[in-house]
């Protein structure tokens, strides 16, 4: 269980998160909301990149007490809105860069990395340098990084950004299958409501830093407040 308790973050006068609480119990859950709603800020708090009032507890561990790199060793993985593949490293080395910081034998790590590459379907390009990857390969490599080393919590910030409809569908299938791999619970941010509806059992909706809805995805999406705040903006775009 991922328990967020009264998270509050201010940037100068701007309240980016305003006493946001939510307890995610589903294997895959979503966070949605319009631009600037505070979705990425929430992930940054859980990662430890921002300090916040309130608490973050995952499976009984108080994450606020760990430094950012210690959270990763504990089992936190995340991807960023802009993918963060090291251009100097091959696909495989990008995964090793995470495994390096975990405990366990080399053989275990090698087997684990092989599984992650196989799961995401990028075994064939494992020796390709990061700089030579296309957008989809980068997103897949990012996902493979996130499932390296038996994680407990995986956070994906707009994992389908820049992908075609078919690619998004394939990525969605992979994300949905992550809980079958081990103990990890997954949090996904995306603007693609179809994707969220497909893979997330629970969803948190933020708007202007406030929680405007939380619960089973279908119920949340039917909520009039959500329609007004979030889907209304979608309609404006269209």
């Amino acid at each position: 269980m991922i328990a967020l308790e009264s998270l509050t973050v201010r940037f100068g006068g701007l309240v980016a998160l305003d006493t946001v609480s939510a307890s995610f119990t589903a294997p895959v859950s979503g966070i949605i909301g319009p631009n600037g709603a505070g979705k990425t800020t929430t992930m940054n708090v859980i990662s430890g990149f921002l300090t916040s009032a309130g608490s973050v507890t995952v499976d009984g561990t108080d994450l606020m007490r760990l430094a950012p790199h210690q959270r990763s060793r504990w089992g936190l993985r995340r991807s960023f809105q802009r993918e963060q593949i090291a251009d100097d490293l091959t696909v495989e080395e990008n995964l090793w860069a995470i495994a390096d910081n975990l405990s366990g034998s080399r053989a275990e790590k090698r087997a684990n990395i092989a599984t992650a590459l196989e799961f995401t379907g990028i075994t064939a390009i494992r020796t390709k340098p990061g700089a030579a990857l296309n957008t989809f390969e980068r997103r897949l490599c990012d996902l493979a990084r996130c499932i390296t080393g038996d994680p407990r919590l995986i956070m994906l910030d707009e994992p389908a950004g820049g992908l075609t409809v078919e690619e998004t569908a394939r990525l969605g299938g992979l994300i949905g299958a992550i809980p079958g791999l081990g103990r990890a619970q997954v949090l996904v941010i995306d603007h693609d409501v179809d994707l969220i509806q497909r893979i997330c059992a629970e969803t948190l909706v933020l708007d202007f830093g406030r929680r405007i809805a939380f619960g089973p995805t279908a119920a949340v999406l039917a909520d009039p407040a959500v329609k007004a705040a979030y889907l209304g903006i979608e309609v404006e775009h269209a």
Binding site: S72, L89, A97, N101
Partner: peptide, 22 residues
């Protein structure tokens, strides 16, 4: 491992921290 950690730091410190790099 050092070289891989350095490559991540060069990419971004946030990416390095998120990968468990000290």
């Amino acid at each position: 491992a050092s070289g891989r950690a350095w490559a991540l730091i060069r990419r971004s410190e946030a990416a390095a921290l998120a990968s468990g790099v000290n």
